[in-house]
């Protein structure tokens, strides 16, 4: 088992390295000269050159890349081209809203879609199954931002149950924090549920046809035990894989949801940085986000071991 985990850990390293190379080259291929931006509009050639020198942009690309790698590995993500603030502290400030939103919406969609998928498969072709499948098909096609505005319109403007946007930090007031997060998390969770529900239903349908499920039933076991202990445990692995896949979708969704609900998170940080062409922030934030994605998938790889003992014995 340790060997399996170690193998997974080692496999994540090259992926991270490639993310680093991709992000670094994107930024360096970008037109527009960060030194010229920083030096200001009235700067003459010498001033821009001096700025370029002080930013290390005159060094050969491999040297710059090495500096970038060294910085990242010690947690130094550089400074914002505009404000001069350290990017690591900017990201830390923005991390709580983003992570809260991602965790809450992912929890909502897992809590909704797994029971929905299991029950839909159990009662295949029933009205419940049809409603679930229609909702799942809808979740695929609904644009996050449009759903966000509709939900704001109904629940914030018309009924007034929730605030229309904004964010309250957890340490300031926990209930307010939750109150502000529920609406955006629901929007993101609904859209994210579609894939997980469909996958749960599809794998459950297959597992329910297996001989051991029939055996369990003929032993006289109750349906709940058959469904949960015999069927779902065997369907859990593909479901876990899909959850891992959909994390990327959740992160993309967070960026849009933060804009709709005016939440000051990492997504807003990136979109603001892009409109200002602050490539230092863009580069570092994307690297951090990709790192989170790779870590989450690593955790999921390790969870397989607990869900499916076969992996434990194979390795």
């Amino acid at each position: 088992m340790q060997r399996y985990i170690l193998k997974r850990l080692l496999a994540a390293l090259p992926t991270m390295a490639i993310v680093g190379v991709v992000v670094f080259s994107i930024i360096h291929l970008a037109p527009g000269d960060p030194a010229a931006i920083m030096a200001g509009e009235d700067a003459d050639y010498e001033q821009v050159e001096a700025m370029r020198e002080s930013m290390g942009l005159l060094d050969p690309i491999p040297v710059q890349f090495w500096r970038f790698v060294k910085g990242v590995s010690t947690g130094d993500l550089g400074e914002s081209i505009f404000s001069g603030h350290s990017v690591s502290s900017l990201i830390l400030d923005r991390a709580e809203p983003t992570l809260s939103l991602a965790v809450l919406s992912l929890s909502i969609s897992i809590l909704v879609s797994i029971p929905a998928g299991v029950l839909a498969a159990w009662k295949m072709n029933s009205i419940f199954d049809r409603v679930v499948m229609i909702l799942a098909l809808t979740g695929y096609a609904v644009p996050y931002f449009a759903l966000g505005y509709v939900v704001i319109f109904v629940f914030a403007v018309k009924v007034g149950w929730f605030p229309a946007g904004g964010y309250v930090y957890m340490s300031d007031n926990f209930w307010q924090y939750l109150h502000h997060l529920l609406l955006p998390s629901f929007v993101l969770g609904f859209a994210g549920s579609a894939l997980i529900t469909r996958m749960t239903r599809a794998t459950m349908l297959e597992v329910l046809k297996e001989d051991y499920v029939r055996t369990a039933r003929s032993k006289g076991l109750g349906e709940t035990i058959v469904l949960l202990r015999h069927a779902f445990r065997n369907a859990a692995n593909p479901v876990l894989t899909v959850i891992g896949f959909s994390i990327a979708g959740f992160i993309s969704g967070v960026v849009i949801t933060e804009t709709v609900f005016a939440i000051p998170g990492m997504g807003r940080l990136i979109t603001e940085a892009i409109s200002q062409r602050d490539f230092q922030i863009i580069q570092s934030t994307i690297l951090v986000v990709a790192l989170i994605y790779v870590m989450v998938n690593l955790i999921i790889d390790i969870l397989y071991v607990f869900v499916d003992p076969r992996i434990r014995y194979d390795s």
Partner: peptide, 20 residues
Amino acid sequence: FMDGIMAIPGILLAIVLMAI
């Protein structure tokens, strides 16, 4: 290499490419 690209959430990668 493909894994590396896929580790960057789609919409973010698209935004950055558009900025460039």
